[in-house]
Design a protein around this nucleic acid. Sequence first.
DNA 1: CCTCACTTTCCTGCTT
DNA 2: AAAGCAGGAAAGTGAG
Length: 161
Amino acid sequence: MLDSVSHNAYLPNTMICEPLMSWSEFFGTMEENYNPFDHQIDNDKACLRKGSIKSQEFQSHNRTSLQSSHLWEFVRDLLLSPEENCGILEWEDRDQGIFRVIKSDALAKMWGQRKKNDRMTYEKLSRALRYYYKTGILERVDRRLVYKFGKNAHGWQDSKL
DNA sequence: CCTCACTTTCCTGCTT
DNA sequence: AAAGCAGGAAAGTGAG
């Protein structure tokens, strides 16, 4: 697993933005019969292409890698990297760790990319998020698409490492 | 091979 | 009516 990480470090800069050309095709064929709103698709596709597993260790903050194996870390890192985020997630209250999912489908798709699972949906992703309430990684917020980091989540406060 | 934590999948019912 | 939310149940997965 260290291989795949260090592997990217050796790539020339020109490769960084398009490490996985197959995915754009993958989504091109996949979303055709999935979403009727074409302009939205184009947006998300561009976003997903851009936000795929690129640019890790050379980023300003190291932990912002989108490489994390756990869902909450993936979400946290997405929140912390506006470049990849593309308006998928947004802070609602930065200090309290409250955030909102703006594009639920895009988020699911992106998580699916990370896990190489093209059947991921927001419905299923959100089930996984709900399990985090138990463990204190997330706290419940009674607003649609709004979540809050809990006591046992770390690394989301920008100031402290 | 087994166990454990985490995640995925599916489902029923409820809320916005 | 569509999209989210709540969790239970059960299967899948990867690490150790």
